[in-house]
Amino acid sequence: MSSCAPNDAQFRIQNPMAEFLRMERMPHIWCPGCGIGSVVTSMAEAIKNGGHDMDKIAVVSGIGCTGRVAGYVKFDSFHTTHGRAIPFATGLKLANPELKVIVFSGDGDLFSIGGNHFIHAARRNMDLLVICVNNFTYGMTGGQMTPTTPTTANASTTPYGNYEYPFSLPFLADAAGATYVARWTSLNARNITDSISEALNRKGFSFIEVITPCTTLYQRRNRLGDGIDAMQYYHDDADIQHGADTRTVDIGFQGKLKTGKFVDRQKPTYLDAVNTHYANVIGDDYQLYGKTPPEKQAEEEAKRAAAAAAEQADGLEAEYIDEPAECGGDDA
């Protein structure tokens, strides 16, 4: 009836996150009120809801607090060097195109040291989902300024306030060629889940920014209170504006936060472009990892035929079972 506190071992097994997390590594190192954990749950939820083959999902992180995500999730997961998650993910995806590769990293990692890789992967429309946990600071190293720290905010390397101009990440991603761009705050846990679901079901370079509290450093140094206060700020000042012009979504210090899905457009992915181009130029001799276009086509047709046969079998079965249960008893 009421909440029960199972023992720790049971909790690790019965927790619905058990299939997504390396439970033997829990509890994690993140601070009280840190938003990273809930974004991880949203990702797991999206993967579960989408029915994706979890063996074909790879998670790549860089360095920092968010960089630790790769070490906690139970997928093929890679904790790389600072800023290099995207090129690593690029190699992984291109070497094994059947993978769904998710890059999960922080604002400092992806946009300072890794900024060049980000814009180029976006430009190529590399088939990656990049989730950026943006807490406006370098957490692991002690609260330094990042390329997203709002002007005037205090950081340990801008102890008298930040005099630089931050990146507006959706604008940057949009300008660089990302084909899906969304922003949420960590209070919008369901929207984050939906956005990740949507991104996992599409091809191309998808970018989701999640504004999260860093209670220990950003919140504390700027006297903004604790995690609940950050959530309150998101609650009061965030405004969902789907399709907003990304030029208008920049973030000032404790200013208005425009959230929503800003960009969703179709463009051939890098690998699609490679395959189409070479199939045109080189013809039937073209092959990727040992398969020529006719071979690939035959393979795809066989797969489609198998899927169609399975669907037909399923359909018959479903029809048969559904009949008595149609409409349920309540309405009758």
């Binding site: 009836m1 927790n15 009280p32 009120g33 809930s38 995690g227 609940i228 309540d330």
Partner: peptide, 24 residues
């Protein structure tokens, strides 16, 4: 006539860091 869903909350108090999000 709609059924109300009911859930049972399971908490591991030793993993909690007291952020209060669930309560709020």
């Amino acid at each position: 006539k709609l059924k109300k869903a009911h859930g049972k909350v399971i908490i591991n108090p030793n993993w909690c860091k007291g952020c209060g999000y669930c309560v709020k």
